[in-house]
Write a protein that binds this DNA or RNA. Sequence first.
RNA 1: GGAGAGGUGGCCGAGCGGUCUAAGGCGCCCGCUUGCUAAGCGGUCGUGCGGGUAAAACCGUACCGUGGGUUCAAAUCCCACCCUCUCCGCCA
Length: 424
Amino acid sequence: MDIKFIRTNPDLAKEILIRRHEKISLDEILAIDEKRRQLIQVRDQTRMEHRQLTEEIAKIMKSRQVSNEYNQANIDSIIIECKTLGQKVKDIETELAQIELDLENKTKYLPNVAHESVPDEDTVVASWGAKPDFSFKPMAHWDVGEALQILDFKAASKLAGSRFVLYKGLGAQLERALINFCLDTHVKKNGYTEINPPVLNLEDCFYNTGALPNLADEMYKCTQDPFYLIPTAEVPLVNLHRNEGFNEDDLPKYYTAYTPCFRREAGSYGKDVRGMIRIHQFDKVELVKITVQENSYDEQEKMRKDIEELMQMLNLPYQVKLLSASEMAFQSAKTYDIEVWAAGCEAWLEVSSISNCESFQARRANIRVRRKTGELEYVHILNGSGLAFPRIYVAILENYQQKDGTVIIPEVLRPYMNGQVKIG
RNA sequence: GGAGAGGUGGCCGAGCGGUCUAAGGCGCCCGCUUGCUAAGCGGUCGUGCGGGUAAAACCGUACCGUGGGUUCAAAUCCCACCCUCUCCGCCA
């Protein structure tokens, strides 16, 4: 929702905010914008006058070299007038800069417009697989993992404190197998291009994706250098083409990246403290697509299918939730969450969030496409996790656990673990 | 971290205080010419912001890595920073 849209459709814009439970005053924004536009007009007018005088001086200076018909006083008076105008322009620019900063500070908190298919309540729209039956009481993953000595929370806390995990032996191999399985599937089967990006990114990148300003407290910031640690590979993938233009034929672009992700989890003290459901550093394979606007919702469905297929290949029961307007991330127009069933915790855990951000991020990152008609427009950008591993790991340990304490390895992962069939 | 070179339109590349409204070339698109290909000739071709319009046309203004400064006037002069390349130092 940019300022032009608000200016032309103020009532519609207000409704949109109400749907998303946002309490930002658009009237204030509109008033600032009005003032801004007035100032721009005055500034440009003054600048024009200034320029004309400058040109006149240039002419005089030139002809003076040939003849001496202009006297010094004459020129001096024009120069003084010119100086005055120049100062006036500077004053206006100072005032304008303040107003534009003000406007930016207000508009950067405006969320994306929710798509018309987005409901007012979270809605489960699909589910797959059956919750496993056990002849015994299934254990939580932290018990399974520690008993098998593949997870070591104590060692992790020695190194980094709470909310970290350390994988060991076959446990570390399992994590690596998950990463490779997902990447390989996206690259070989679904046509995504693999990227291995920096995980320290500059502040602008975070603003462009929508992570800043809202999630500032969620991220780790470097004190000596202007970096943040990425909370998701969405940040580098979306910014890969920052300030670039595409031809229509270049699109769509499909990208995938494995990266560690870092989150402070501020404000969730005491929530999910045990185990690895909510940790400060975790591995994730991310998907990002860049498309022309009319294809983005089809592409979102395709992305959802790509991710669901991973779940099915891993044989993990899941449900798909269509998020309500008020639950979605700030930058998203439509989001599906995929939740895996974890038998030990007896909970649905979010393992993927598939968002169509439409042109929200493209506007901030300035990524456009030249259409065949010659027109320039913003691209649509989508992202989805495929997948976030700790919770997949949790589901595997809890759903695949056996009475004797061993854990069967999902079939698709065995080739990545030297054919190993089970752990323990 | 130290020394040097550089950053100009879609690309190459000139310009180093006042017709820069950015040369020239390549490329793109349109037209003409030529039996196809190639070549030739002419024309067109940026983005943001504001105004204007039903939409265009059009008008104003800004933009030569970024941000400041000097000047009546900055791509051009000064300062700071960023990035790229080369060399040196340090280091996985």
